[in-house]
Simulated scan of single mutants.
Amino acid sequence: MKTPSKKPATKKPAAKAPAKAARGFPTLALERVLIQSCGGLVCGVDEAGRGPWAGPVAAGAVILNPDDLPEGIDDSKVLTAERRETLEAEIKARAVAWGVGFASVEEIAELNILHATGLAMCRAIEAMSVQPVGALVDGNYRFKLPCDVQTVVGGDGLSLSIAAASILAKTARDRLMVAMDEEYPGYGFASHKGYNAPVHQQALKDLGPCPAHRRGWAPIRALLED
């Protein structure tokens, strides 16, 4: 009697890792919900420049027209500089209202960066030709603004209005930093926009801080104390 031969063991194919979900694009879904609860116009609000070593913090506020949306609005961080500038012009031309506000280096030193950011946001809303009754604000901090506030973590990737505001804040601040580069040459503000970068670090070692630097920031304060 023949012993039946064993079939060679077969390896189970390795389980494939689930494909990473494609990043969705921002929509007006959050705006519609807030409009229903507020009963009026809603803007998106976002900031640019909370972390740099130099320059002001900027904020943008936008009420989009749902019937006349520029194509391609997205989180400013995922767009090229050229695309941001193109969208900036379209947003300003087609939005119901928009505004940009700044808080200076001196105001950051006096108030701290969080409250200075809130001040820039208030100024952005106050600069709008039409005032909103509600605001979607990127992040989890509930700033005191001149309207109802709904915070949205990761809002610049979820809300079209916040994404549009992020574009206006970023382009406005970038232009200001390019102008600041001419006022304070040698630091490279036009390239790194005041953020931490090797060329910025070297310039600080060579030249020391200038009036555009945030003197309360630890790296700048350390240089001033040397």
Rank of each mutant, 00 (worst) to 15 (best):
G60K: 01
A48V: 13
Y184S: 08
A190I: 02
A172E: 01
R23D: 10
P209I: 01
A120E: 01
H192W: 09
F143M: 15
G101N: 07
E110Q: 13
C147E: 05
E88I: 00
L41I: 06
A222R: 14
K144H: 06
A163G: 07
M177K: 12
H200T: 12
R50A: 14
G154D: 03
E225T: 09
L168D: 04
A58I: 03
G186R: 08
L158R: 15
E71Y: 11
K193C: 09
L79V: 06
P211V: 12
A97K: 05
R94C: 09
G24C: 00
D181K: 06
F189P: 06
R23K: 15
E47R: 11
D174I: 13
S5T: 13
V96W: 02
A15E: 02
T117M: 07
V153P: 03
G44V: 07
S76E: 08
G134P: 08
V42S: 00
C43L: 09
R142L: 07
T151K: 10
I91F: 03
V178K: 15
V100E: 05
G194F: 00
S191A: 15
F143G: 03
I63P: 12
D181L: 13
V78Q: 14
T10R: 12
V178D: 14
L207R: 12
G49C: 13
S76I: 04
G216V: 00
A222Q: 12
A179F: 03
P211A: 14
A109E: 09
A29I: 00
P132H: 05
M177P: 15
T171F: 07
G154P: 04
L119N: 07
K205P: 02
L176D: 10
V45L: 02
D174F: 13
T3G: 05
K12V: 15
P13F: 04
T171W: 00
A116L: 05
L176K: 03
L64E: 12
K16M: 05
T3R: 14
D46C: 06
K193G: 04
W98T: 07
A89S: 12
S104V: 14
Y184F: 15
F102N: 14
L160F: 04
P219D: 12
